[in-house]
Design a protein around this nucleic acid. Structure first.
Lengths: 167, 167
DNA sequence: GTGATATTTAGGAATCATTCCTATCGAGGA
DNA sequence: TCCTCGATAGGAATGATTCCTAAATATCAC
């Protein structure tokens, strides 16, 4: 998807995000590919147009766009590796409130790969389903802004846009 | 799942992994929880029994166990964040050969959350399906050890067990 | 059992993605 | 056009993970 400046301006305004040349270049580069680039990839790409741009701006902008719901992190919660001794096929319930990951066993979900793999030019060796949402406990507690949270939001947009690692 | 020393010994032997007190403690701690701990979590836990253990040993051991297929990383490929401007619901084909992530649109997969969400004590706000395997190109190239690769393998067990960041 | 050999451990240093800090700079409303 | 607040860029700091190495330990052949 390549995108016109007007369309971009419209999307930014809708989400209340300021438009700057740097941001346009970053969002444009991301919207122009399906390759799920890293911040570094985008930095290298945008540098062709804005040679003086800093990596910091790329990170900051991606944070803003993520908080605004204009972009998503594919592998969110990538900050630290998490391990599991359960090597059988199973799926995960990921709580956006407390970040807990629960296991989910479901034979129907286990069979997805057969169905999908057979009609793609891709040899499927495994698969996994993630459900995102709020666990019973978090729901009881207060349901923290569920309606407006997007994948990968865990800080509020205006106080600290750059996401802070939670430790 | 808590596990007996004998059972552990059996699993280690099956996979050709040496058993040491430190490894037993690490694997035991991981097998004794469903909380998907981080290396740091396991380090803290194992320290209670082996106060002199180093973080390095925990990392090294987790690497060995992962290569042997005894444990999995939940959020593998967590090394760097990857972004996507496509915020519509879609799924991913993840190539274990070249690490490329392709998009997959599938209306049937999109409906999973309704079915699953309605029978759990978990409010599902979104979901995503990942298929792992080998893309057409990688398959044509040579299919690098597909049969023995597990989630999160990208280096060979004996040359460098501790996974090396690929840049 | 004993010794030889290869692996594992632990400590410290190094790496590198990401975040923090701060002094300009610029977008957009008045 | 001017003002104000948010954006930018550079540099320093952070922290998970990996690298390097010497000493400790497991395993194997005898």
């Amino acid at each position: 998807m390549t995108i016109s400046l007007d369309e971009m301006r419209k999307r930014f305004r809708e989400r209340g995000v300021r438009m700057t040349p740097q941001r346009a270049a970053i969002y444009g580069a991301l919207a122009g590919t399906t390759s799920h680039p890293t911040a570094e990839d985008l930095y290298r790409e945008v540098k062709k147009i804005h040679p003086m741009i800093s990596q910091n701006t790329v990170y900051y902008t991606l944070g803003v766009l993520r908080e605004a719901g204009l972009v998503r992190e594919v592998n969110y919660w990538h900050d630290r590796s998490r391990f599991d001794a359960n090597i059988g096929l199973h799926h995960h319930l990921i709580c956006l409130g407390c970040r807990k990951i629960e296991d989910l066993m479901d034979a129907t979900l286990d069979r997805l790969s057969v169905r999908v793999g057979s009609r793609l030019d891709f040899e499927v060796t495994g698969h996994r389903v993630e459900f995102h949402g709020y666990c019973a406990e978090c729901r009881r507690r207060k349901k923290p802004g569920a309606a407006t949270r997007h994948l990968g939001h865990y800080s509020s947009p205006h106080t600290s846009v750059q996401r802070r690692r939670e430790r």
